[in-house]
Design a protein around this nucleic acid. Structure first.
Lengths: 380, 380
DNA sequence: TGCACTTTGGCAACAGCGTTGCGAAAGTAG
DNA sequence: CTACTTTCGCAACGCTGTTGCCAAAGTGCA
C-alpha cells in the first residue's frame, strides 16, 4: 500500500487496484530475490504471500514479460507434475552505491540481486568544497557505469537498467530532501543540496542517507531478522535501527544518534558538548587499551536500546570492532545476558553478532537505497 | 492491508480486494472519528484519502447502511450545492477498558468516539490470586455493561454493539498471547493466561496490554502527533512509544522499558538488580525532595530516547509528575533544549508537554485496544 | 422572477485486481 | 498402458475504485 494515491497532506493514503498490484508485485519480487540462485516455485510463492496460485501465475507472467524474472529448471516431482522454478534476472536492473568517508570514496555497481559487478575506490578530501567533491563523485559514477554497462559518455539516463545512485555519508542530514546538515568538522557543507545537485549532474535519481542507515539497510535486505540495531564503532559511534524490516529514520532523519547517549551523569566531557556520552566513554577506554571495559560500556548502551525497543538482534561493525571482534561481541553479550537473567521469565537474551560483510558494506547498502523500494521496502 | 490473507509464517501478506475495502473503510472511519461532532464532508474525505469522490460516496453509503455513519446537516454553500456533512454514530459501538493497578480497579465503558459513557471504581488486591481478581474484573465489566447498555444478565456476547474488553496493567506481559509474565511483586501471576480466561468468562474478545502502552494508545488516538513517547512517573518509571501513529511493542512486547535505562555507570543499586537506572536515580531525588534534580535526570533519559528515535514529542504523566507538573515539564525541556542547541542546524528542540487526560486515561486507552483496529490501527 | 453558472453527489458503464471452475500438461506408481 | 497426482494456464466471475454523465441544490446577476 505504498507509493500510490499520495495525499496532499502526506497523510495515510487510500488504496486502489494499482496499489494492490504494486504491493503484490513487490512482495513476489522480494521473495524471488531472497531465494537467490536456487529460485522458488510458484506454489511456494503462493504459500508465502497468502495469494492463490493463479494470482501468482499472473504476477510472475507479468514479471517474465518485463524481463525481471525467468524460469530456471524444475524441482523433483513429488508424484505429479514437477514445479517450475522461477528466479530473478539480476541484470535487469542496476544501482550505484557511493560511500563518502572523511578521506575516501568508494563506489560499487550492483545488480538486482545486490551482487557487486563493479567497484571504484579513490582518495577524497571532503574539505575541498562541494563543487570539487561533486566532480569526483560524478566522475567515479560515470566511469563505473560506463565501464561495466558500456554506456557511451555522459547522460546516464540513457542506461535503461540503471535505477539511480545512492550516496551514504557520515553526519546528520535530511534524507527526505537530500540536504546535508553538518558533515562532521566540515561546516562548509552545511545546507548543501547534495541529492538535487548530483541528480541534475548525472541525469538519474539520487538518494542520500547516513552511513549507518545505509549499512543497516544492507543488512536488512541481506536477510537479517525483522528488528535489529546495527552499532558502528569507528572514529565515532553511531547506530542504524531496523524496525519491522525497514530502516527507522525518524521525522528529521535524526534517529540512530546512539553515540551521544548519556551513560554517566555528569561524567567526562564529550566533544559534542555534553558529558558522559557513551561514545566518549567507549573511545577513551579503547585509547587506554582497555578493550574489555570499552565492550562493557558499549554493552550497557546497547542494553538500554534493547530494553527500550525490544529488538531481536544487535549487530556490531566498524574498524574499532573488527580490530577485536571476539572481545567486543563477548563483552556486549555479557551485559545483555545479565539483563535478561534479571528479567526472569522474559529472559531470552538478545543475541549479539558481528555484522557480516566487509569494508564495502556501506557502499552496498547505499545502492540498496534504490533497489529496496522495488521489493516493497520504501525509504520512509 | 491488515487482517486478511495471513500467511502461515506470519510474513508479509498479499493484498486482495477485501483488503482494499477494509483499508479504505478504516481510513474513512478514522477521519470521521477525528472530525468529531463537527463532522466532515465527502469531498474533504476524498482529499484527505486521495480517493475519488465517487469512491468515498460508495464507502460512506456502506457505512451509513451499517449504521456507523450518518448525515449531519450541511455546510455553507460556496456558490453551488452545499456539502453534506457526515459524522460517526458513536453509539454504534462500545468497548470496555479496565485499568488494574496494585490496589485499585477502574473500568470505563466508551463509545466509538472514545467518550466515556459509564465508569466503575473499586478496591482491588492483586495479591489475592488470579481467580478472585478475575471474578472482581468480570463482575465490574458485567455490571457496567448491564447498567449502561441494559444487557440482561451474563453473556455479554448478546450485546451487539460491544466490541470487547481491553485490560491494562503494570508489569511485563505478552500482548500477543495475552499472558502475564511477572506482575511487579506478585509472582503468583506468572504465566497466567489472563486474556483467554477473561474472554471465556465474559464471552467477548479481550485484549491485554501494559498500562503505559494503553495510555500511549489513548494519546495517539486522541490526536497526538505521529511519533511520540509517553513517560509515566508514578510508583515506577515506564514509557509507551508511538512510532508513526502506532504503538511500538517489540517482538516480545517488552518495548518501553525506559525506567531501567542505565544513566549512571556503576551508580547506586536499583531494585531490578542493575546499577544506576534512571528510575532509581529519579525516584531517589524525588524522595529527597529535589524535584529539580529529578526532572533533570528524567530529562537526560528522555534526551537519550529522543536522540535515538528522533521522535516529535515527549509527554509526561503519572502521579509524581502531576504533583509538580510545571517543574518536571520545565526541567525535561531544559535538557532537551540544551541538546538541540548543541546540534546546531538540526536544532529544533523536541517539545515537552504534560499528557492530557486525567486519572482515567489508562482505562480509556485500554478501551481503545478494541476500538483502534476499526480505525486502521491494528495491535501489531 | 428567471436564467446562467457552480458545486455536490448519485447512477451506470468500465478497467483491472485476485478468485474460482475447469481442463491440459507432465510427471509417478502399479 | 492405465490410473492417479500435481502443476499451471484459460475463461468466467465478483468486486474494487474510476470515469462519464446527469440530476439536485445552491448562488449571482439581469
Amino acid at each position: 500500500m505504498d507509493g500510490v494515491n499520495r495525499t496532499k497532506s502526506g497523510g495515510p493514503a487510500g488504496a486502489n487496484l494499482f496499489a494492490v498490484r504494486s504491493h503484490n508485485t513487490a512482495l513476489v519480487l522480494d521473495l524471488l530475490r531472497a531465494a537467490g540462485g536456487e529460485g522458488i516455485s510458484r506454489l511456494e510463492l503462493a504459500e508465502r504471500t497468502g495469494l492463490t496460485p493463479q494470482a501468482v501465475s499472473k504476477i510472475t507472467a507479468r514479471l517474465r514479460e518485463a524481463g525481471l524474472a525467468a524460469e530456471a529448471g524444475r524441482r523433483a516431482s513429488t508424484g505429479g507434475k514437477p514445479r517450475t522454478v522461477l528466479r530473478l534476472v539480476p541484470e535487469a536492473g542496476h544501482a550505484v552505491g557511493v560511500h563518502l568517508d572523511r578521506d575516501e570514496l568508494r563506489a560499487v555497481l550492483v545488480d538486482l540481486d545486490g551482487a557487486v559487478v563493479g567497484e571504484r575506490r579513490g582518495a577524497l578530501d571532503l574539505g575541498a568544497g562541494a563543487e570539487a567533491v561533486l566532480g569526483v563523485v560524478a566522475g567515479a559514477v560515470e566511469g563505473l557505469v560506463g565501464e561495466v554497462l558500456e554506456a557511451a559518455g555522459p547522460g546516464l539516463g540513457e542506461v535503461a537498467s540503471l535505477l539511480g545512485v545512492g550516496v551514504a555519508l557520515p553526519g546528520p542530514l535530511d534524507h527526505a530532501r537530500g540536504v546535508l546538515h553538518r558533515v562532521t568538522r566540515f561546516p562548509e557543507w552545511d545546507g548543501f543540496p547534495l541529492r538535487d545537485a548530483l541528480a541534475e549532474r548525472l541525469g538519474v535519481p539520487v538518494v542520500v542517507d547516513k552511513d549507518t542507515n545505509a549499512a543497516a539497510l544492507g543488512l536488512a535486505v541481506g536477510g537479517e531478522g525483522g528488528s535489529f540495531a546495527y552499532l558502528h564503532l569507528g572514529t565515532g559511534l553511531g547506530a542504524g535501527l531496523v524496525i519491522g524490516g525497514s530502516v527507522h529514520r525518524g521525522v528529521r532523519t535524526g534517529a540512530g544518534e546512539f553515540g551521544h547517549q548519556v551513560l554517566q551523569l555528569d561524567g567526562p566531557a564529550c566533544e559534542c558538548g555534553d558529558r558522559g556520552c557513551v561514545e566518549a566513554l567507549c573511545l577513551a577506554a579503547v585509547e587506554r587499551g582497555e578493550t574489555e571495559e570499552a565492550a562493557r560500556v558499549l554493552g550497557v548502551g546497547a542494553g538500554n536500546l534493547v530494553a527500550l525497543l525490544d529488538i531481536d538482534l544487535v549487530l556490531l561493525g566498524g574498524r574499532t570492532i573488527t580490530a577485536a571482534p571476539e572481545a567486543f561481541v563477548a563483552g556486549v553479550a555479557n551485559v545483555l545476558d545479565a539483563r535478561a537473567r534479571r528479567e526472569g521469565a522474559l529472559g531470552t537474551p538478545t543475541p549479539v553478532r558481528l555484522a557480516p560483510g566487509g569494508e564495502r558494506s556501506v557502499a552496498e547498502g547505499a545502492a540498496q537505497l534504490l533497489l529496496a523500494p522495488l521489493f516493497g521496502r520504501p525509504n520512509t
